[in-house]
Design a protein around this nucleic acid. Structure first.
Lengths: 330, 330
DNA sequence: GCCTTTTTGTGAAACGTATCACGTGCATTT
DNA sequence: AAATGCACGTGATACGTTTCACAAAAAGGC
């Protein structure tokens, strides 16, 4: 095994003619006389010394590693989130150790165990397991999903986003609104998009309907529903809010095939705004989640030393971005 | 610090009334009498014991962690690759520690240093730093880019893919071909797409041109070029091969705006086929990279114990997938 | 039933680091 | 000039494992 020959602090100490403790101090930025510091640094460079983080972690119980548990990173929202988390962690000197669960509750639990076993300094998780066990030994921040009273949850202001979407549609002149959703069976913060939407509609006295599907239903029910609501080439609704940009695009295509076009015949608003954080123009009008801010916040909270007075839910503000599926005033 | 109270093997040994070494054996699946094994397991459960991987790593010099260094994970190709790498690593009991370089050569080097310092068991990197220093202490596999004689490089058969694209276009009846490329200034394996394309064209005696841009040039030169080659609403070329699906889509839109439509007026083929690995239909006809296989191969090679007779370049086969921008025979 | 072989539990040593009580030398004070 | 304080280098110790040489007990052969 080649690695057995890796130089240790002891080697550096011998090479530099100093004590072991002095070498340690140099690499921990503890006060050391300038002459000694130089001697150590030079000896280290000569030997190609690198500190062994496993030994260090063993002594200090700090690993400077954080586990991020996500369903996948193929969905653009998740990949942008993962990238922002990675950057936020790097900025603070932490490494990111990524786990992909593919929405499998067992995998989620397994990864969290593994993460604890691997002695990470914390975990950021977007999980769907309704009865997830999180040992209180390792700091945990949940994204978009309530886990338990002492686990802080970071999410966008989904309720406000739902309201905003409905309000926007009404301002654009829509009179019959439709909310379309497809997603997990497990309730999460993002379900509040619907609540916000309905809340606004009720408050403003606007007619509205809702179609609420689960992933397993597939997209076909949407087509059936829309088809059933087209009479003489006209859709019964003039404003649609989709729970996701991805869904919004699907719906736009679906409607196109049925002869109904956005934004001419119907105003269409999605949710996420991921494209914006990818440096691209959004492909549909959308409620934008502040992904970089969400990531920063997750990391901030996770790494906060004093966890005494943390809110259990942190809601971050969303914004509206026109993207060609609505007829916005200039 | 709460973690200081975590139970250790010594605690388990005391609780179970056995020796320290016996506990260790149980957790390493070494032969231990059934009665003892049970005693230890129960004691461990009672105490909530988990092995400390830092102590273990210190002794064994194995961390079961692999660093993956990528430019980003926003580009769908990279995110699908990252996901497949993660899964391939997980399958083998390894964890993935992800670093994002944003194409910054310095960051690449920094991350690789960091990865070594963190005592990973290996590194898989997609790097653009032409003179990257990789210590031979840590196994390294490069994706798509030649680094040095003793660093194995895994890539798609880019040359073959270029040939395949040209051949396909010719089979579809095209007579004047065009190759469009935009990318890094640093030469990589993917530049062989052009070589393969030109090789086939020359061999078959097909007229062809090439436009070769760098990222910093932006997409405008493409528009200028295409515009200059449209006479009386007709494009001079009847078959276009783009170095990337992303570019192919851009070009299709660009051409549409100029009144030239794929596949009616021009056959368009891209490269990557990422959408297919995301479970979606490809948005353009394309040469598909075998991303899952690429990932598996990277991991296999990285984790191979005997590195003696490794090829320095591993080329994996690509395939063609029609996707609506070519008029393929049924 | 004795000796050999095999199996299996034991406890000490070592991995590479951080830390801490200690010792040395030097500057400051009176 | 002696006493005091300070700054800084020293080296032993401990962190929680794995491993290894050893001992003890069980199994097998004649």
């Amino acid at each position: 095994m080649r690695r057995s020959s890796a130089p240790t602090m002891k080697d550096v100490a011998r090479e530099a003619g100093v004590a072991l403790g002095t070498v340690s101090k140099v690499f921990n930025n503890a006060p050391v006389g300038e002459e000694y510091r130089q001697r150590v640094l030079e000896a280290a460079k000569r030997l190609g010394y690198q500190v062994n983080n496993y030994a260090r972690g063993l002594k200090t119980n700090r690993t400077y590693a954080v586990a991020v548990v996500l369903p996948n990173i193929i969905n653009p929202f998740f990949s942008v989130l993962a990238q922002n988390l990675c950057q936020a962690l790097t900025k603070r000197g932490y490494r990111m150790f990524l786990s992909i669960t593919d929405f499998d509750p067992e995998a989620e639990q397994r990864y969290i165990h593994m993460a604890q076993q691997n002695q990470v300094d914390g975990i950021i998780g977007l999980t769907y397991n309704p009865n997830l066990q999180v040992a209180d030994k390792v700091p945990f921040v949940s994204f978009d999903r309530y886990v338990s009273p002492d686990v802080p949850c970071v999410a966008s202001d989904n309720f406000g986003g739902g309201q905003m979407a409905a309000k926007k549609l009404v301002e654009l002149g829509c009179q019959r609104l439709l909310f379309l959703r497809i997603g997990s069976t497990v309730a999460g913060e993002s379900d509040k998009r619907r609540d916000g939407f309905e809340s606004f509609c009720r408050g403003a006295g606007v007619e509205h309907d809702t179609l609420y599907l689960r992933d397993s239903d597939g997209l076909d029910p949407f087509r059936d529903f829309l088809q059933a609501h087209i009479h003489q080439g006209r859709l019964d609704y003039d404003g649609i809010f989709c729970c996701t940009d991805v869904l919004a695009l699907e719906i736009r295509n679906m409607l196109s095939a049925l002869g109904v076009h956005a934004p001419e015949d119907v105003q269409l608003i999605g949710f996420d705004g991921t494209a914006i954080h990818m440096g691209r123009a959004p492909e549909c009008s959308t409620i934008v989640q502040p992904i970089p801010l969400l990531a920063e916040t997750c990391v901030d909270i996770l790494l906060k030393e004093d966890k005494s007075d943390l809110p259990s839910l942190i809601c971050l503000p969303v914004s509206y971005a026109p993207g060609g599926t609505t007829q916005d005033p200039v």
